[in-house]
Simulated assay, not measured.
Amino acid sequence: FLGRADDQVKVRGYRVALGEIAQRLRQLEGLRDAHVRVDERGQLIAYALIAKGVQIDGESLRAQLGESLPDYMVPSHVLTLDAFPLTANGKLDHSALPTPQVISQQFEAPHEGVEASLAALWEKALNVEAVGRHDNFFTLGGDSILSLQIIARARRQGIRLTPKQLFEKQTIAELAQVAVLSEAKPAAAPIVAAVAPRDFALTPIQARFFALPMAQRSHWNQSLLLDLPQALDVAVLQQALALLLAQHDSLRLSFHQGDDGQWLQRYRDSENAERVLWTCELTREEDLASLSDE
Score class of each variant (00 low, 15 high):
Pro85Tyr: 08
Asp7Cys: 03
Ala193Lys: 14
Ala130Lys: 12
Pro75Phe: 00
Ala189Asp: 09
Ala48Arg: 01
Met73Thr: 00
Glu285Cys: 13
Leu92Tyr: 13
Lys10Gly: 01
Asp269Met: 07
Ala215Phe: 00
Glu174Tyr: 11
Glu294Trp: 13
Gln222Glu: 15
Leu232Ser: 08
Leu161Phe: 04
Ile172Tyr: 09
Asn272Glu: 04
Arg266Tyr: 05
Leu253Thr: 09
Gln206Trp: 11
Ala211Asp: 13
Leu97His: 09
Ser254Arg: 15
Arg275Gln: 09
Gln27Glu: 08
Glu271Tyr: 12
Leu65Asn: 07
Gln230Asp: 04
Trp278Arg: 10
Phe1Leu: 12
Ala207Cys: 13
Val180Ile: 07
Arg15His: 00
Pro213Trp: 03
Arg275Glu: 01
Glu281Asn: 06
Ile205Phe: 07
Leu288Trp: 07
Ser68Asn: 09
Arg217Lys: 04
Gln216Asn: 09
Arg198Gly: 14
Phe138Pro: 01
Val192Ala: 14
His77Phe: 15
Leu121Ile: 10
Ala88Asn: 14
Ala289Phe: 02
Ile145Asp: 01
Leu264Gly: 03
Gln238Ser: 12
Pro85Glu: 15
His248Trp: 02
Arg268Glu: 12
Pro190Asp: 06
Phe167Arg: 00
Val78Leu: 05
Asn127Gln: 14
Ala83Asp: 14
Pro100Asn: 09
Arg37Pro: 03
Asp135Thr: 06
Leu224Tyr: 11
Asp143Leu: 00
Trp220Arg: 02
Gly258His: 05
Ala51Glu: 12
Gly142Arg: 03
Ile159Tyr: 06
Gln43Ile: 02
Ala231Met: 01
Leu288Ile: 02
Ile159His: 05
Val276Pro: 03
Arg208Val: 11
Leu181His: 10
Asp143Glu: 01
Ala48Lys: 02
Arg12Cys: 02
Ser250Glu: 07
Asp82Gln: 08
Gln165Asn: 01
Ala289His: 06
Lys52Ile: 12
Ala188Cys: 13
Glu29His: 06
Ala119Cys: 11
Ala189Arg: 06
Ser223Trp: 04
Lys91Pro: 01
Gly158Ser: 03
Tyr47Trp: 03
Arg41Phe: 05
Asp39Cys: 07
Ser68Pro: 08
Leu81Tyr: 04
Phe255Gly: 01
Cys280Lys: 13
Thr87Ile: 08
Leu202Asp: 14
Pro197Ala: 06
Arg41Ile: 00
Ser60Phe: 13
Ser254Glu: 09
Glu274Trp: 14
Gln170Tyr: 10
Gly142Ile: 02
Leu69Ala: 06
Ala289Trp: 05
Arg15Leu: 00
Arg41Cys: 10
Ile205Val: 14
Ala46Val: 04
Ser147Ala: 10
Arg15Pro: 01
Ala231Asp: 09
Ala235Met: 07
Asp199His: 08
Gly113Cys: 06
Asp57Gly: 10
Ala188His: 10
Glu285Trp: 03
Leu228Trp: 00
Lys52Cys: 10
Gly258Phe: 03
Ala109Tyr: 15
Val131Trp: 07
Leu232Phe: 10
Asp6Ser: 09
Glu108Ala: 11
Ala189Lys: 05
Gln23Arg: 13
Val114Met: 03
Thr171Pro: 15
Leu212Ser: 10
Ile145Glu: 02
Gln247Trp: 00
Val11Asp: 00
Gln23Ala: 10
Ala246Lys: 09
Leu126Glu: 06
Pro213Glu: 11
Ile50Trp: 00
Val102Asn: 11
